[in-house]
């Protein structure tokens, strides 16, 4: 037995194990049950979206391919965000106006008034600003935005079960595995806000930097301003 020569060391290690006090474990029963009970319903929906997207792409390719090699005009959608995979034709307004009815708040207030669970990426610490946008008559925001790192990073979250809120036009996009589905847009791209009334506010169009979009449960997230997918994913994974 090679172990014999190490008997004393092994005994020390076992003793170390016994002496190593670990803080008490949290009771996971309820949390695990909650998590297991929830996403079972979500799955079919995510799959529905995926198949819808695949179908849309197939149709688009079938119609367009003979004329153009590139896939133009196909759109993708992640709950709450519709992505048009084309090169933007219209020029952006010179002075875009912000999303309607924005006001400043703090995280605690955002959590209180938003109709969905407001989260934040732990990695980025506390936000510089918290903005509530497109309030309804009761004051509940449709979009909550957290601004970090002196305004260079922006984290939007909104109820994705509503109709698309953002319209994005980008020629290149990459599918990413995160939440119920995610898209990475590495290049700056125009974004238009679609109001509650379903009207696209072109005056709100602005050029967004690299953006990661993903959906979990009913909430859709948009993280703008991190230059590499790896960094964006890192921040996204720390959202809680």
């Amino acid at each position: 037995m090679p172990e014999q020569e190490f008997d004393a060391l092994i005994e020390e290690l076992r003793e170390l194990g016994r002496a190593y006090a670990v803080p008490e474990a949290a009771d996971q029963r309820q949390a695990v049950r909650r998590r297991l009970a929830r996403p079972a319903r979500r799955r079919p929906r995510a799959r529905f979206y995926l198949s819808a997207i695949v179908a849309a792409l197939v149709v688009a390719v079938a119609v367009i391919s003979p004329a153009r090699a590139a896939v133009v005009g196909a759109f993708r959608r992640i709950a709450g965000i519709e992505l048009r995979q084309e090169t933007a034709r219209e020029t952006l307004p010179a002075t875009p106006s912000p999303i309607p009815s924005i006001r400043d708040a703090d995280l605690a207030e955002a959590r209180r008034v938003a109709p969905f669970p407001v989260t934040s990426p732990a990695v980025l610490g506390s936000p510089d600003r918290v903005l509530l946008a497109d309030l309804d008559t009761t004051g509940a925001p449709r979009v909550v935005s957290l601004v970090y790192l002196g305004g260079t990073v922006r984290f939007d979250q909104f109820d994705g079960t509503l109709e698309p809120a953002f319209l994005k036009t980008a020629p290149n996009a990459e599918w990413v595995t995160l939440g119920d589905g995610a898209i990475w847009l590495p290049m700056p791209h125009p974004v238009t806000y679609v109001g509650r009334d379903g009207v696209a506010r072109t005056e709100t169009a602005h050029l967004a930097g690299p953006t990661l979009i993903w959906a979990t449960g009913s909430v859709t997230y948009r993280l703008e301003g991190l230059t590499t997918l790896e960094d964006a994913m890192e921040v996204a994974r720390s959202v809680r």
Binding site: V123, L124, L149, L226, D231
Partner: peptide, 14 residues
């Protein structure tokens, strides 16, 4: 991911 996060924060100037 902790190692990468530290990298992210450094690159982000934090």
């Amino acid at each position: 991911s902790r190692r990468r996060r530290d990298g992210v924060l450094q690159r982000a100037g934090v």
